[in-house]
Write a protein that binds this DNA or RNA. Structure first.
Lengths: 337, 337
DNA sequence: TTGTAGGCGTTATCAT
DNA sequence: ATGATAACGCCTACAA
């Protein structure tokens, strides 16, 4: 038991002295399940309060080898859905006692250094959200095999060393496709996002397959190199501006809302047409803007709260394989399609 | 020097044994400025690579009492500008070797627990971004005086125990006001955000003062209880829908873009009027959507990269007072006003 | 219920 | 340039 430390922080020892107990009793006072008398706890908590003591989580983590800290690696801040995901994730994690580090994976070459960084902090899990964590990056990451848990959130992955928590893309896309068919649209156009090296069947492929089987026609599509509304607007207006009216699609099915919002802008302000009367639009994600009177976008909402809660279940699980899970969301019908 | 540890992590000792040097030499190999021979460093780095060793930052922090980790407390995820700020902040911090914890301050009562949490992690600085950190909360927080650095980002504050990094609201608002005057608008209407207990002069007050002095008239205003576009649209349409044409404002000046985008939606889709012909709109922040062909919002852009870089300067400074700084941004003129 | 050793993986500081 | 000692503040496991 020593007296005041050099660092300026109050330690358990200081509180112990003040409360007239041992340092270990002090620590017990801060644990829920600890076996400690109510009197002792009260005494300790009072002393801690007056001294301004709070336990040091670095030391706790070092000694116990779990930190209740996760790293979230994210790219693609242009997509407004990321803000929604961050809100849900931080809310649920914090509500259940977890902290998170947010890492901006600046570009694809930065993915590995970013993963390395998470390892240095000895986080309990590393969560990947974004488009640049393709199979190749994952392979390289897991070569070293030094992640307690590597979780891919809101994106499916067949990678074996990884836990994937995502919406069932196939089911979702089929629900969208059926809606498009049932509403009588005949000539859909698919607006896809950046191509990745991921092995799984993309939303676009699922949709095109469905349409081909249903009607025996291949519908057109184009890819936008980023999930960016402005870019999507540019590409849609380029693609459609010189098409005669009878070759025009009657609906644009978009891989996500970022693209869909751009598509609506282009249809109205570049092509001078109406949504949905001339061309309908359908999105994916249900970002807040979808509800704006300007867009009223029909879209597919992922059950993000459920997914985030399941993520914490995974964090708190002793297992770290066989934990993949897909979720079913729902189509939110508004006026855009 | 012990052999393989129980935790599964490779330690500096393991590398030391493998490389035939001492543990301290291993650590030196990972420091830029360390005095170590090139040969020794190469030997160590090779051994580390094959063993998969990376330094443990928890232990480093515990021993050195600085973590290169900051906590960012943020609320108001409805405002799309938050995503931009997060992008810039994470980019600059990471580029300069800092990690950040992101904490969602769920509501006002959660501010104190959230601050406590940052203390438990012994972060080098706590950064506050949001509206709920008013003077009262700051007071309570600093009563305990246990923050190495408490920084208010993108918001001015007169609190003495706090470092405020923000745009010069007064200069910005005056620039906007002069623009409004010079373009010949006569009857501006101010759309404000939630009222806070902050002591400083708000943008709204600055604008109203200017207009009163310039023309001797008080312009109308209304407050939206959250920085939320949908809500802003509702309130604008309520407020203006039953005004006769001659009492209608010719421009709506908004405290930020979230409100401004909602105002535009309301003007078009609820009031059936045109922007800017019937009513012009001006915002603040320059969120990405401003550039959309649908909005083309005239707005004021904060120099976020400069501000973020200055934030890191502050983190790396030995001082922790007299560090307040305000920045000057610029008006970005588009077609909405 | 309460106290005690020993260890977690670094760094500061001093010694060689 | 390299090695060694003593923290850093807590937790696990066990003893009293």
């Amino acid at each position: 038991m020593k007296s005041s430390p050099s660092t300026g922080y109050v330690t358990a020892d200081d509180v112990a002295t003040a409360a007239g107990v041992s340092r270990w009793t002090v620590n017990r006072a801060f644990k829920k399940d600890a076996s400690i008398s109510a009197a002792a706890r009260a005494k300790v908590l009072l002393a801690a309060e007056t001294l301004g003591y709070v336990p040091d989580l670095r030391a706790a983590s070092l000694a116990s080898d779990h930190s209740n800290l996760v790293a979230i690696l994210i790219d693609d801040f242009a997509n407004p859905h990321k803000l929604v995901m961050l809100e849900r994730l931080t809310r649920v994690l914090r509500g259940r006692g977890w902290d998170m580090m947010l890492v901006n994976t600046l570009d694809r070459d930065d993915a590995e250094p970013a993963l390395m960084n998470a390892r240095r902090r000895r986080v309990d899990a590393t969560i990947l959200i974004g488009i640049q964590f393709d199979d190749e990056v994952l392979e390289a990451a897991h070569k070293a095999q030094h992640f307690k848990k590597l979780i891919i959130f809101a994106r499916s992955s067949e990678n074996k060393d990884t836990i994937s928590i995502s919406v069932d893309d196939r089911a979702a896309t089929l629900e969208i496709a059926e809606y498009v068919r049932d509403r009588g649209y005949k000539t859909p156009f698919y607006l896809a996002g950046p191509r990745t090296n991921s092995a799984h069947l993309s939303r676009k492929e699922t949709f095109l397959d469905f349409w081909a089987k249903e009607f025996g026609v291949t519908c057109d599509s184009v890819a936008v190199p980023a999930y960016d509304s402005i870019l999507a607007a540019d590409i849609i207006s380029e693609t459609l501006s010189n098409k005669p009216e009878n070759e025009r699609p009657d609906i644009i099915v978009c891989e996500n809302d970022a693209l869909a919002l751009g598509a609506i802008d282009a249809i109205r302000h570049r092509l001078g047409l109406r949504v949905p009367d001339d061309i309908a639009v359908i999105g994916f994600d249900d970002v807040p803007q979808c509800e704006s009177p300007n867009y009223r976008l029909t879209t597919y909402r992922q059950p993000l709260m459920d997914m985030a809660n399941y993520l914490v279940d995974v964090l708190e699980s002793a297992e770290n394989s066989q934990l993949d899970k897909t979720f079913i969301g729902r189509l939110v019908v508004r006026e855009s399609a």
